[in-house]
Amino acid sequence: MGAEGTEGISVMVVDDHPMWRDGVARDLVERGFEVRATAGDEAAAVRIAGTVRPDVVLMDLNLGTGSGVTAIGEITGALPATRVLVLSASGEHADVLEAVKAGASGYLVKSASVEELVDAVRRTAAGDAVFTPGLAGLVLGEYRRMAAAPPGDGLPSVTQRETEVLRLVAKGLTARQIASRLRLSHRTVENHVQSTLRKLQLHNRVELARYAIEHGLDTDPESDGGPQ
């Protein structure tokens, strides 16, 4: 029973639990997705993703060997066309936020239904940011935290409108409900949501670069050992 709009979308499933991994892979295949590969740990995920180049990597964050965040950074860094959708246990808070900052474009709890999963994978492949209310709360909190910190020069901040949209997402409103409440088009709401995520990822890259400059380039560039 294929679902609409799933044809031709290639997916890779990363989870260290074979039972869950194979179940999800089977669900996706039944709905018409092409599951190109599965992986059970971070190293394999990065290696295999580089070879099979899926449209969407469905990534568990609790991989036993690590949080998966590093793998997400490496995959999105090396494969600009590949999007990462985090499929994780609810409440893995700091991890989910780190994953999104590292480049994941969405997050879905494992307790979501198959229909929600299919929809999320399809939207992720289309370039949308998949936001749960939980993730919106995390992103909102992160922007509030950054706003409280001393202002970084040139770092992006969210607009009032984007904050408003994020709050409504966090309160469980759908994009359509938000659009009607704020009298915006559905597309504009989606764009606002994506924009908050992109800015957060940009912010993260700028911070990483700044950290590298402060901690690496201050010392003699000839020496390859960084400061302690």
Binding site: S90, G91, H93, A94, V96, L97, T132, P133, G134, A136, G137, L138, L140, G141, E142, R144, R145, A170, K171, G172
Partner: peptide, 16 residues
């Protein structure tokens, strides 16, 4: 607050 989450109630909080 996170402990109040149930199948019907979702709780969104900051990471910190």
């Amino acid at each position: 607050l996170r402990l109040l989450a149930t199948g019907r109630a979702e709780v969104s909080v900051p990471a910190t």
